[in-house]
């Protein structure tokens, strides 16, 4: 492999403990390098936007961070655990919501909560009291016994997010969490994300919507397996002299 120069991206200015930290994290499939020695870090409680065109290596990088696939080289530490050595510990400390919103449609609202809380080893009493709290926060008290398939898509996504952070993970990974909903519903969804971040949960989110990228504390854009740019949305706009994140993204991805 040709050796590229790799910039080290320091954490945000108001330095807090790190929730995610990678150094020259690499994944190769045969001769194809999907993730090419990326180095970055995410502070605790930060909302980190992980952008990139399809096939840029976002998903592969995220899978390594979730403990699902082993890095070819380099290392990643998530919630204080090396993903290659302690994938089980990592899995225990993170939450995950996939782009297909990932709840069971034929289970009721409370059954979904009960199931995933149980999977993360929470006790019965804690689950019971926290379920009440969560349903109240979402305004879902009346929907406790509703089958998830009967909920509108925006509600499902809010519920899926609440389920993903129900066990109070240190980091929650959101893989295109708001696919297919309108900007107004997305805004409401992001209110939940802000609440979670305020409680100290680190949010690691991939998205295709550039209005969402604006909501993030910091944004990285991946191109061909490498992190091309990484900064706050404001700084990126200024640096590329772009009116919006949309233009920032276009210019970064299409750079020859």
């Amino acid at each position: 492999m040709p050796s590229n120069s790799h910039t080290f991206y320091p954490p945000a200015a108001d330095a807090q403990p790190l929730s995610v930290y990678t150094e020259r994290l690499t994944k190769r499939f045969g001769s194809f390098t999907a993730v090419d020695a990326i180095t970055f870090s995410v502070a605790q409680g930060e909302i980190f936007g992980f952008l990139g065109a399809n096939g840029a290596g976002k998903t592969t990088a995220m899978r390594m961070l979730c403990g699902l696939s082993k890095p070819t080289s380099g290392c990643a530490v998530v919630a204080g655990y090396d993903v290659a050595r302690y994938p089980e510990k990592v899995k225990q400390s993170i939450g995950y919501m996939s782009q297909r919103f990932s709840l069971y449609e034929d289970l009721k609202v409370w059954e979904n909560i009960r199931l995933f809380a149980g999977i993360y080893g929470m006790g019965k009493k804690v689950i019971a009291s926290k379920t009440e709290q969560t349903l109240a926060e979402l305004g879902f008290e009346a929907e406790r016994n509703t089958l998830v398939k009967a909920l509108p898509l925006g509600w499902k996504q809010k519920l899926a997010f609440s389920v993903a952070i129900f066990h109070e993970p240190e980091v929650v990974f959101l893989d295109e969490p708001t696919g297919g909903v309108d900007p107004a519903t997305r805004r409401k969804f992001w209110e939940l994300i802000y609440q979670a971040a305020e409680r100290g949960i680190t949010v690691f989110v991939t998205t295709h919507y550039m209005d969402e990228a604006e909501y993030c504390d910091r944004v990285s854009i991946m191109v061909d397996g490498r992190i091309e740019v990484l900064d706050t949305p404001k700084a990126l706009r200024q640096r590329l002299n772009a009116p919006s994140m949309d233009v920032v993204f276009q210019r970064t991805v299409e750079k020859p």
Binding site: K91, Q92, S98, Q99, S102, I119
Partner: peptide
């Protein structure tokens, strides 16, 4: 197909 398998695999189970 529904994507729930992914969530189960990311879980500590």
């Amino acid at each position: 197909e529904t994507g729930t398998m992914e969530v189960l695999l990311v879980s500590p189970v």
